[in-house]
Write a protein that binds this DNA or RNA. Structure first.
Lengths: 212, 212
DNA sequence: GTCTATAGGATGATAGAC
DNA sequence: GTCTATCATCCTATAGAC
């Protein structure tokens, strides 16, 4: 017998269930990312998923349940690039590579970035505990690594936390403020990700390289 | 007789009208910034303004009218710091000063920053014309100024547009992602704006200073 | 599992007394 | 100018047929 403490989406057992669950989450990602939690409606999600509204609610018990399911996956994948930063690698290269990986994520997963941005800008009502928890823990750990690199003069002396913040800001900006950037740079194709890559590589390489 | 082409808020003529209009806009700024356009309700705004809902709609004909009134003021004040960047000043100092002014705005006007962020992340439905218009024009103009400085070797050779984007990103991040930063840095008081100032000063000074 | 129909509540906006 | 009462619509969620 299943737990009754929390209403949950049924664990997808059949192929159809799994497929529908994924379709719904993908549709929900699209809609939540563009309109925010409150601005998104089940009608929009249902339409995007090609299902009826009640059928949506057969797979997920409520609107918040869909959003929560998305958020659970999001934070994990969102932090993967930072986790990969290797304390034993070359300091400058590790940090620059991290920034470029983040930029790559903005290009490949702009919807996830905007979903996250919507949540944070509005006060992180649904993931504040995770920010104070696993996110803070990971950042603290990596900040210590960076501090170590600074102590051994492998990189220039800068605040590790604000360095990480600046990497988040500059890279996610290309996904979150995409319309603004397109409005200014105009070009039809997305060549601005290439120029952004060059810029950020140059930017972080220059601040990190020790002055000696 | 008044124009019937566009429903408008009554021009505030008496002191009371002016005061109420301002109270409403301030309340609306608070609520829209935190919940986005769709997430905000007239009830919330009315409560925050200390007025009844119908009384709100006496001063503004609709919810969108309030939002529009806010957006009109916003874009202007938002671009003021960039306008102040002086082609005749010292190049490095002008750009660093611009970045620090933007950071100051994030500290003093976080609600405006989040209002803007909400609008852009969700695709700028209400101000896209202004982005393609006055915003693009101003950025183009200042990018030319920066290109001139690069041409005369007063600053290092970097993409002017992405430089401006990075200034927007790194500074607005402290307002828009405030909860995240607080969750990680934790301190009770807002000392992180001081450390951010030091960091950004250092950051932009280092990339801009020519290598010669 | 999927649908139509609908309950039940919130929300933007208006009517009309004062 | 400001209020109470209310309308009309939209939205989340459920009931129940198939």
């Amino acid at each position: 017998m299943e737990s009754r403490l929390h209403k949950k989406a049924p664990k997808p057992r059949t192929r159809i269930q799994k497929k529908n669950t994924e379709t719904i989450l993908d549709a929900a990602l699209e809609v939540f990312a563009q309109h925010g939690f409150r601005g998104a409606t089940l009608d929009q999600i249902a339409k995007a998923a090609g299902l009826s509204k009640p059928n949506l609610l057969y797979y997920f018990p409520s609107k918040v349940a869909i959003h929560r399911a998305l958020m659970d996956v999001l934070l994990k994948t969102w932090l993967d690039p930072l986790r990969e930063m290797d304390a034993n690698g070359d300091p400058v290269e590790e940090i620059v590579a991290y920034a470029l990986r983040k930029l790559e994520m903005s290009r490949e997963m702009p919807r996830e970035s905007r979903l996250f941005a919507n949540e944070i800008v509005q006060g992180a009502p649904n993931i504040y505990d995770k920010i104070e928890g696993e996110l803070k823990d990971l950042v603290d750990e990596k900040a210590r690594v960076i501090s170590g690199w600074i102590a051994q003069s492998s990189i220039a002396d800068i605040d590790p936390y604000h360095l990480i913040f600046s990497i988040w800001a500059t890279t996610q900006h290309y996904a979150d403020f995409d319309v603004q950037i397109r409005g200014i740079l105009r070009p039809e194709e997305d060549t601005h990700f290439d120029t952004a890559r060059v810029f950020l590589d140059q930017l972080y390489r220059r601040i990190l390289t020790p002055l000696n």
